[in-house]
């Protein structure tokens, strides 16, 4: 693929712990935006940002409506809204019906990001109990982007990465611990 311009990550059950591992292993020099759709249970978005901010070398913030996507930041979808990226790389929210029983839905984020970044997008699907993210990841690949799926055997709940593999396939299917170094390698300028 071309040099990556952005990363989108989707996770559900077991996602919080997986995100701690993923974000914790990122290189502080990453300049790409990393957008996260996590079906969190009861945690508020503020709490989630704070807890993840403790382990992430990049600042973790809530994605803000109409604001530009920020490079070098982790940005989370707010609870109760679908998060989308406009073609001019600003955030948009929607209260359209749930998709795969979820709002925010990973499919919705990935589909819009695939239009915004096309072949320079990396999509990552982690642990989870639904099939959300599978169709989104298919669209990421169809637009020429790169798909990374946590290997189902390494996932706390394998259903979601398995569904993504079945529907979209993957460029990389690796254990969780290998995903941060892989992202660093794909995103940092080559020496």
């Amino acid at each position: 693929m071309k040099t990556a311009a952005a990363i989108v990550v989707g996770c559900s059950s077991g996602g919080f712990d997986a995100l701690r591992v993923l974000l914790g292993g990122l290189d502080p020099g990453l300049s790409q935006p990393l957008l996260v759709c996590c079906h969190s249970g009861s945690e508020t978005i503020e709490l989630l940002c704070e807890l993840l901010g403790r382990v992430s070398p990049l600042p973790v913030i809530a994605a803000a409506e109409r604001h530009a996507v920020r490079g070098g930041h982790v940005q989370l979808a707010p609870t109760g809204y679908h998060l989308l990226v406009e073609p001019d790389r600003r955030f948009a929210l929607s209260t359209d019906p749930r998709v795969n029983h979820s709002r925010p839905s990973i499919d919705v984020l990935f589909a819009s990001a695939a239009v915004a970044w096309r072949e320079t997008l990396i999509g990552v699907v982690l642990t989870g109990a639904s099939a959300d993210g599978a169709e989104g990841l298919r669209l990421v690949r169809r637009a020429g982007g790169c798909a990374i799926v946590q290997s189902p055997v390494s996932a706390r709940v394998p259903a979601m990465p398995q569904a993504a593999l079945d529907r979209a396939g993957a460029d990389y299917c690796v254990p969780l611990a290998d995903i941060p170094p892989l992202l660093n390698r794909l995103c940092l300028p080559r020496p």
């Binding site: 990226v85 406009e86 073609p87 948009a92 929607s94 359209d96 589909a111 819009s112 239009v115």
Partner: peptide
Amino acid sequence: YAPASLRRR
């Protein structure tokens, strides 16, 4: 209308 949601709808 904002394009991303419009396209989706």
